[in-house]
Amino acid sequence: MSVEKREARQPWILLFPALSAVTLLLFVPLLFILVYSFWLRTATGADVAGFHLDNWQEALSDPFYRDILISTLRIAAITTVACALMGYPSAYFIARSQGNKAVLLLLLMLPFWISYIIRTMSWINILGVSGAINSVLLALGIITEPIQMLYNEVTVILGLVHFLLPFMILNIFVSLDGIDTNLEDAANSLGATRWQAFLQVTLPLSLPGLAAGGLLCFVLGAGTYITPLVLGGPRDAMFANLVFEAIITQLNWPLGSALSLMLLAVLGALVMIYNRYLGMAQLMKGLG
């Protein structure tokens, strides 16, 4: 075998384990889901194999699914903006801190050591009628009746921000940490105030990190179903809850497959737009 041929084969040999894993664990299941989406469900819950467009027709034409999808994207967008507003100052503080950066980053990672479900449920003990806030307010005599704070859209967004904020902070931090601080000093020496230097130098340079964090928060937020289940009221379902109900409650795997692919297509399109204009490299840095 010639050297050229061997060199040409080497990357594929090295990539083989990863490609096999992605094929077996992602593409093959996705293919199953795609095939399933064309099947039908009988009254007993059994599936009928075949090529039927009924599920896709229902998923794409029924305003019920469209409305919940729009509501899901709206909640994910609000969550992303909230994460950006809260995450940027924290990331800036960590990036500019001297000496204790590692400790701060460790603290940032601490919530990941606790299950996401437990973290979500912890809000019940904070915001509940017998929770920490109501107990303190009642004890101080500020209120006479507990305030109903749980089980609405605000608590769903709060739970999502709690879950996603570290992802946003990490991405912005990576971006800010890579900016040469001499650039701000140079702007100051040229007459810019600290605020102007931040607005015109630091912020534009950190935008890729902000965008990467935003994309992660949006995609993860739009795909969640635990948070609305635990912290939402009767009307606060998100699109993933519809997938869960179709598959688990209604035993309608074909429709559930079509709905999950629909959500995947919407979020996939968003990732492709991001990749087209900003590239995935920044996202990889943030995840790394």
Binding site: R41, A43, G45, F64, I68, P234, R235, A237, L242, E245, A246, T249, Q250, N252
Partner: peptide
């Protein structure tokens, strides 16, 4: 079962 579980899924969410 098939019809009512689906309808409830919608009613539950405000429809």
């Amino acid at each position: 079962e098939a019809a009512w579980s689906k309808t409830f899924g919608r009613v539950q969410k405000g429809y």
